[in-house]
Nucleic acid binder design. Structure first.
Lengths: 213, 213
DNA sequence: CTAAATAAATGCATAGACTGCATAAAACAG
DNA sequence: CTGTTTTATGCAGTCTATGCATTTATTTAG
């Protein structure tokens, strides 16, 4: 059942189409590439293309919304760290990185997404598509941390705000990813972003930063 | 030149189409309404529809990105308040509210947008479409506040993060708008949201909130 | 190994959003 | 009233996307 011919062929076809699409889009710009062009380059029918990815955008940003693995979720809900936003952001970025094992392809995708408004919009929207699931995950963490279920509504509000903020920050992170050097550490990038947020929300307007530390 | 027949007719046509579109979409759901249906209801050709709004979504969320008025921008750049994020958010929401004088129509739009994922995505994206202009506005404020232009790059980063965060928070605010009662104060909504953000970013995990304060 | 069952790939027809281009109708300026 | 400038429309065509029927390939049961 596993590793059968069918499964392997399916994976191969998917990869062929994806690579063709990314390559074409990098060369001509996403909006100047038609689905037919991608199909011809990857030798499948248009119908097959849509069977795999559902939409033209899907071939770049992924046909199905990315959900963190159970391991990541566990690590998040049980984290002892006190910074909810940082931990959540870490979970999300980890699962994004892990989704694409091929580093070069990962970066090509990022580059493409950042230079194509349409794609960036979609990718950003992905987070809120799964909003309810994320809320559930955050609520689990609250629960494990022993927060009283009494004020569940307030906690849920808080969770939604965390997700909204994360979606915003992710835009920033993606931008950095796309222009990063090979050795760049995502961990550092995240902690810098969190620090930046702190500066902003605790803004005292006087000597906000810059030369500081 | 002003108040001419042409201009008035144009405004009337636009309003007719918008009302027809919103009404139809509220009744049948945005995705079940075709452009042809809107055209028939408002007695214009399809071509005219696209001349006015550019896209099916445009008729709901507005054909052109909303930019705050000069008054709002001035108020923002010269604000003495120390909370950059709060001030920026205030400027944005004010200009959104002011854009639609008809309160009932404003709420219909919000309701529609919140119940239609596709529209919500677009509306959210609107903010980043004008990102560069917003960055410029924020930089002006920094300048007026006497921040050294020496660390301009860092300040620009900070500005972009503020915009990203605002985009996130706006999602939350819109949600509240759509479900709010007539008398609800936007000012209160904003200050509650800001407070929520503070709780999150200063999170101490122990007694984070709920019964507190 | 063969035949039935299952899954995948394809072709075809069609809807619906959107654009370019040419033309007709309306409003305006002098 | 006449020439100019804006709007409105018609029409043909492109492109994404979906439903349905058919063919082809893989798997599994006997």
């Amino acid at each position: 059942m596993n590793g059968g011919l069918r499964e392997r062929k399916r994976a191969a076809t998917q990869e062929t189409i994806e690579r063709a699409a990314i390559s074409l889009a990098l060369e001509h710009g996403f909006e100047n590439v038609t689905v037919d062009m991608i199909c011809e380059a990857s030798m499948v029918s248009q119908r097959t293309f849509f069977n795999y990815f559902g939409s033209k955008e899907g071939v770049i940003i992924g046909g199905t919304p990315a959900m963190p693995s159970n391991d990541h979720i566990d690590a998040f809900t049980r984290a002892t760290g006190s910074n909810l936003l940082a931990d959540f952001l870490t979970m999300i970025t980890s699962s994004l990185l892990e989704r694409e094992p091929d580093a070069a392809l990962f970066k090509d995708r990022r580059t493409l997404i950042m230079r194509t408004p349409e794609l960036l919009i979609r990718e950003t929207a992905r987070m809120s598509e799964s909003e309810d699931q994320f809320v559930a995950i955050i609520m689990t963490r609250y629960e494990i941390q022993g927060l009283s279920p009494a004020n569940q509504p307030e906690l849920e509000d808080e969770a939604r705000m965390v997700i909204a903020l994360t979606a915003g920050v992710l835009r920033y992170v993606r931008h950095r990813w796309a222009s990063s050097q090979p050795g760049a550490s995502t961990r550092d990038l995240l902690s810098n972003s969190i620090e930046l947020i702190h500066r902003i929300t605790n803004d005292h307007s006087q000597q906000p930063k810059g030369t500081a530390h």
